[in-house]
Computed example of a mutant assay.
Amino acid sequence: MAVLRVGSLLFRLHPGALLVTLLAIAIMVKLGLWQIDRGLEKQAIMDRHADAPHIYQPNAQTIAHLEADTRISVRATLDTERYFLIDNQILHGRAGYHVVALATAPEFDGEYLPVNLGWVAAGIDRSTFPEITLPEGELALDGRIRIPSSRPFLLQEQTFTPPESWPVRIQFPELDKLREGMRIPLMPVILLLAEDNPLGFPREWPVVVMTPQRHYAYAVQWFGLAIAAFVVFFVASRLRAKDDDAKSYEE
């Protein structure tokens, strides 16, 4: 057992306790640095979101090659009979669906742009779909481009065939499979209708789930715990040393 003297203070350091304390401090410092890195990543995402270009009335070829988060504005018409319901969507603690409509315009060359119009509540009876009325006529649609994952995590693989009736409930918008299986000429991206657009249903599209400030706050907590572990160890060591000195004096 090593003895460390700092001025008039005597510390008796147990090797095992010292090793565990140093290991714990290293882990907490590493977690703090990781939170800082995550905060910087989230800030970069938010900066890209704020600086994303805005394109007006693009054609189908242009839309198909847009990067995620690009803002677009189009005048288009929705197919009021055919739309998708994305299952298991939560808004403010309630379960429901995202309504994905099919938009068409002369610039789209016969292809459809999937448009996520927002969230609707699910009923108690899963066999009954919510009653939805889509707006008719030419509409002003604006929002941001989202590129769905090509390999989403699903509990069960989806298969698509031309449906006998609409709407169609899906787990995830696998657009390539929808295009091939349901024989609908879909563009490979989805438009998330802007939150301030008066059309559609309630919707919230957070840029990031956790803000950079929250990550930085967690980093401070981890660093604080590391400092606390360091202080507690040496205070405990000093107290043990004082006890040992008292026993030696009594003897």
Rank of each mutant, 00 (worst) to 15 (best):
A229Q: 01
R179V: 02
L191F: 09
A236E: 08
W166V: 05
I25K: 06
A122C: 10
T211G: 00
P206T: 06
R203F: 05
A229N: 05
M210R: 08
A50R: 15
A122V: 05
P114L: 15
T77G: 00
V220C: 04
E138Y: 11
E131K: 13
W205T: 10
E131L: 09
H14Q: 13
A228W: 11
L31C: 07
I124G: 03
G39V: 07
P106I: 10
L239G: 00
V209L: 14
L155R: 10
L186D: 01
D142G: 10
R238A: 10
P212E: 02
G137E: 10
P114H: 14
P106D: 07
I170P: 04
L199F: 08
M46K: 12
R71V: 05
L10W: 14
F223S: 02
H215D: 02
V231E: 07
V120S: 00
L193I: 11
T211A: 14
L154N: 09
Q171M: 13
S73Q: 11
W34K: 05
S8D: 15
D69Q: 14
P135F: 12
I184M: 15
A64Q: 15
Q35I: 02
I27Q: 09
G93T: 00
F223N: 04
V3T: 13
F108M: 07
N88V: 00
G16K: 14
L191Y: 06
D142N: 12
D87S: 03
R82H: 12
M182I: 12
D87K: 02
